[in-house]
Nucleic acid binder design. Structure first.
Lengths: 220, 220
DNA sequence: ACATAACCGGAGCATCTGCCTCCACTTGGA
DNA sequence: TCCAAGTGGAGGCAGATGCTCCGGTTATGT
């Protein structure tokens, strides 16, 4: 870090570094950026000291991990932009983007909040935005998405659906797709029949379970 | 509390009790049930000791406050059920219910989570549920709400929209109405044109502000 | 006017959680 | 074999939160 000489790590050190990164990925995905470095160390079966020697602070660990994940969203966006059907492109991007954020809560938090630190992530977000604007613009041009939709509305939808997904995560990890579909049906300017629901609704037990879990989680 | 003799409080004590209740209402509404009793005391310009003498623990304070608020939701539901137009009834209830929850985050938390404590609130929720089921059932019977919608989906929608509202609370307190409208448009089985948006979208400054605030709030 | 029970404020205690440092001990590999 | 590189985890520090305690104040009945 101090000098440019990138002497390779000792083999055991490199192994530990990987374990830390792996554990961080898992815990950040499950619990969001709130996951503590102590937890990560425990999960990686490594002392906290080891974590801190390798990653001077939490910010750097996060930066190291999430640049690539933001890349995935950008990739999804550009891939969608290359599709010929404007509606399919729009719908597929929204769905894929939500999938990524549901799998990884920390990713969602980084996408929806600004933090003075994390310039690399900030830059990543700024690369994504114009591509999303293009996807939306093309769909509106083609008349398959309502004219009055703004890009900022996509932020709201993502946040809302993401939180709903977190709510039912344990009991019914796919339930958010119902909400996604309702939203998509609400975004089309001209639509005779509703699209078919992709997954069944929550049963009573799943509802009870979600409400209980969420209450407990909040209390922590 | 110990004996049945309900000797009235001294005048200053009664005054302080009211100030505590008022402040609790305000802070719970703004910050959710997470608001601490110390905060409430400070806001009420009263010592913490005074709060704890009057309300042995947080639970009792919450129970005292929110029974009436749940009543408001129940009232909104029964009022809607009396309307003649099934769609208007359904839409108006959803909208009114969201309004109440956006105004008061603690109310939303109590509606969407189960806590072993708070039996009175639990009972309140159970009174509301069948009325909502009736509103939804009637709308589906009349063919104005998609058949495949379950009551549990309304939970998801409320949670999601509620969180989106919290997200933009500072910068654009009415922005959630756009998401609500998109969802409502997605719930109609047969719809040619999108309904007009009730409020303008967020401008860039409002977006930046929401993202910044949310990041800060989360970090706390 | 005065006595006194009721009430008040807020310093302070206990607890918890999270970030991070330090240093005595262990180990890979030249 | 030897030691720089690496390790683990106790513990310091800081901030939040729930709650108690008690010296001092005040309302109220007589």
């Amino acid at each position: 870090m101090a000098t440019i000489s990138e002497r390779p790590l000792r083999r055991d050190a490199e192994r530990n570094r990987q374990r830390i990164l792996d554990s961080a990925r898992v815990l950040f995905a499950e619990r969001g950026l709130g996951a503590s470095l102590d937890e990560i160390a425990r999960h990686a079966d490594v002392g906290v000291g080891t974590v801190y020697r390798r990653f001077p602070d939490k910010e750097q660990l996060i930066d190291a991990l999430f640049e690539e994940r933001l890349g995935e969203i950008l990739a999804a966006a550009t891939a969608s932009l290359e599709m010929s059907d404007p509606w399919a492109a729009f719908a597929q991007f929204l769905e894929r983007s939500m999938e990524l954020q549901v799998e990884d809560r920390a990713l969602k938090e980084l996408l929806l909040s600004t933090t003075a630190a994390h310039e690399r992530i900030e830059r990543g977000r700024q690369q994504i935005q114009p591509v999303v604007a293009a996807i939306l613009g093309r769909a509106q041009q083609a008349g398959v998405v309502r004219e009055d939709l703004a890009i900022s509305d996509l932020l709201l939808l993502q946040h809302g659906i993401g939180e709903a997904a977190a709510y039912t995560r344990e009991a019914a990890p796919e339930a958010w797709r119902r909400m996604m579909l309702i939203a998509l049906d609400g975004l089309r300017p001209d639509r005779r029949r509703p699209s078919p629901m992709p997954v069944p609704p929550l049963d009573d037990e799943q509802v009870v379970c979600s409400m209980r879990d969420w209450g407990l989680r909040r209390r922590r």
